[in-house]
Nucleic acid binder design. Structure first.
Length: 355
DNA sequence: TGTGGTGCACCCGCTGCAAC
DNA sequence: GTTGCAGCGGGTGCACCACA
């Protein structure tokens, strides 16, 4: 096995070079969590993995509560499945909350204020329609809690990590928030061992080939726990050592579709680029896709690897897409790029042109 | 209707230190 | 020596607003 084989298998398992699903909830359940910090682009992260989806299909899934947006992994906002959200928060969020302790101290948020903030949110949202961020900040203000210097945001995220609230569909362009237990029906809570072994199984199935370090990074588990839960399920996977790293993966039944000639436009923070500790498998030049401080740009994939970035600019009825590909595509490849743009245009239901 | 400026929200990677 | 934790710095996209 070579690095290109790893990338090709990841494109397959991540539902990019082939799509097995027709519903947003099936994609999200398969990947366990899909990073969703940039809302409009995150719709495409789900949509590109579906057959013939449009952006309103993903938004409708949020309205229908078949997927939910909250902070289940690494303190990062993701889409996840209603049946997964509570156990992920229970078993994965405590480490994130510990890590946020430093930031809370910096902005002057102590445990008493955070608890009071949660009570304010609970009272404001109980039996109410979802509220926007400004509305929740007003509630904090009325309770004499200062929301400046991002304190309001930190109370909001803390409340989500504690499982009190989750993100509900947008009102206009504003995201709204609801009480998790009012928004989603009660679900079975697996015990820790069962839940985290299942997490390992699902990560290596949907994201493999991946290393135990990748799993630890993605899940936020400690290295010790990541090894423990991989050990619990690794007999279900194949193992390959490439350039000194051990990768675990599900083999593909039948012939693996070649993605060498295909071009894919991935959104910023896509699982294909973000969900691994070691991104060198797909990022020849890491700077092309990442600024190095947590910001991931939208990328162009060709021959399984990141070959450049793309950027969209919206005017009234048109998206103009600008690409930065090195070296520039030859004419034939430009046509493949235009095909990828057409796919994206269908998804957003707006004409897309290459600048 | 388009353009430009401003502020907000986002969270990752790196380094150093402590604990085991 | 390995692992985990704490602290810190910072680039990008979006919403919003003012103005042409």
């Amino acid at each position: 096995m070579k690095l290109t084989d790893i990338a090709r298998l990841r494109l397959h398992h991540q539902q990019i070079s082939q799509q097995s699903f027709t519903k947003p909830q099936d994609v999200v359940r398969w990947l366990v969590a899909v990073q969703a910090q940039d809302y409009l682009n995150s719709l495409w992260a789900v949509g590109l993995r579906l057959k013939n989806a449009r952006d309103q299909d993903i938004e409708q899934a949020l309205v229908d509560k078949t997927i939910v947006r909250t902070w289940p992994l690494r303190g990062t906002i993701h889409y996840t499945s209603p049946e997964d959200v509570r156990w992920m928060l229970k078993y994965l969020a405590p480490r994130v909350i510990t890590r946020y302790g430093t930031v809370h101290r910096q902005v002057g948020l102590d445990a008493k204020t955070l608890t009071k903030g949660m009570k304010v949110f609970a009272k404001a949202l109980e039996g109410s329609a979802p509220l926007t961020r400004p509305e929740l900040y007003d509630a904090l203000g009325r309770a004499k809690i200062n929301t400046g210097e991002q304190r309001g945001l930190h109370i909001l995220v803390y409340s989500a990590l504690k499982g009190l609230i989750c993100v509900a569909p947008r009102r206009g362009k504003q995201p709204t928030f609801a009480l998790l237990d009012e928004w989603l029906p009660a679900t079975k809570m697996p015990d820790r061992e069962e839940a985290l072994a299942s997490l390992a199984r699902r990560y290596f199935s949907s994201h493999g080939p991946a290393t135990v370090q990748d799993f630890a990074w993605w899940s936020g588990l400690t290295g010790t726990d990541a090894r423990k839960y991989l050990d619990a399920v690794k007999k279900e996977f194949e193992e390959a050592t490439v350039e000194g790293q051990t990768y675990w993966f599900k083999p593909v039944e039948g012939k693996l579709k070649s993605a060498t000639g295909a071009v894919f436009l991935l959104p910023p923070y896509d699982e294909y680029t973000v969900a691994y500790k070691d991104r060198s498998v797909v990022l020849e030049d890491a700077q092309a896709a990442s600024t190095g401080n947590g910001i991931f740009r939208p990328v162009v994939i060709s021959g399984q690897r990141v070959v450049g970035t793309w950027k969209r600019t919206r005017s009234k009825n048109l998206f103009t897409v600008e690409t930065d590909i090195t070296p520039p595509f030859p004419k034939a490849k430009q046509e493949t790029l235009k095909k990828a743009l057409k796919h994206y245009g269908r998804f957003v239901s707006i004409d897309v042109e290459l600048s």
